[in-house]
């Protein structure tokens, strides 16, 4: 038992020092300024190469294309199976895209610099989340019209609803995704581990988003009030947990 308490105190020492270091001191920037700085940095980095966006978009497109072989893509069938297909594509694309969010900080150890900057850890998390949200939303904006054309469903008349479902669903993907991309950055087999961790967590999002999209695409369209409420609720719950947990993830 003596050795246990020994290791416990060992574990506490570095974390205590880093908490005092990263917690908002009088000189630190306001949360929104820090958040914006991290977000702008992410977007700038991505715009230099655009590799993440292009790869994810092509990957998602490939999934949507491959799905056409798994069922008869007539209008009737598409309305039935399409929403689930679309959201599976988004989930896979999202998991793939979230992988490098923290990984690309590793090569030059730039996360250390981020942590040294006078911004709260929450600002780093929210900035990264916002950037991931933007990237995934762009992919979805590209994918939805392609899906509508390929699978013969009309989205134009219910576009505001589809956009709302996409925004809420994307938030639900990005919030846990950013958290777990931060933690798995050091794991072995992280390329496999991240989807393994994330996909079950996404289940409520997948169910609700699929239900909502199916209701909107049905003939005549229905307003999916319940599914939207569940999505919004899940987003809020995930975000609250993320904000509370992230401080402990960044300290070492």
């Amino acid at each position: 038992m003596a050795s246990n308490s020994q290791s416990a105190s060992d574990a506490r020492v570095p974390s205590a020092s880093s908490t005092s270091f990263t917690s908002s001191s009088p000189g630190s920037l306001p949360l929104l300024t820090g958040l914006w700085a991290v977000f702008a940095k992410e977007v700038r980095t991505e715009l230099r190469t655009r590799e993440l966006l292009v790869t994810t978009a092509v990957f998602a497109l490939t999934i949507v294309f491959m799905f056409s072989f798994s069922f008869d893509p007539t209008s009737e069938e598409s309305r039935r199976i399409g929403p689930g297909l679309l959201w599976i594509a988004f989930l896979f694309a999202g998991t793939l895209m979230l992988e490098p969010a923290f990984l690309r900080e590793q090569s030059n150890d730039t996360l250390a610099a981020l942590r040294l900057a006078p911004i709260a850890p929450t600002a780093i998390l929210l900035g990264k989340m916002l950037a991931n949200f933007l990237f995934l939303s762009i992919t979805e904006a590209l994918l939805v019209p392609v899906f509508a054309v390929f699978y013969n469903v009309s989205v134009a008349s219910v576009l505001p609803g589809i956009i709302l479902v996409c925004l809420l669903g994307t938030l639900g993907i990005v919030i846990p995704g950013t958290i777990f991309s931060a933690v798995t950055a050091h794991a072995r087999m992280r390329e496999l581990l991240l989807p393994l961790l994330l996909l079950p967590i996404f289940t409520p999002i997948l169910i609700a988003a699929t239900e909502a999209t199916a209701a909107l695409l049905s003939d005549p369209p229905e307003w999916p009030a319940m599914a939207l409420r569940l999505l919004a609720g899940a987003d809020i719950i995930f975000l609250t947990a993320a904000v509370f947990l992230f401080d402990s993830l960044l300290e070492e």
Binding site: I179, F180, R188, S248, L249
Partner: peptide, 19 residues
């Protein structure tokens, strides 16, 4: 899959809460 003792515990705790 995580070798570092402390990191493993943190990761596990966070995932347990999320799950």
């Amino acid at each position: 899959l995580v070798d570092d003792k402390q990191r493993r515990s943190v990761l596990r705790s966070v995932y347990g809460i999320f799950a």
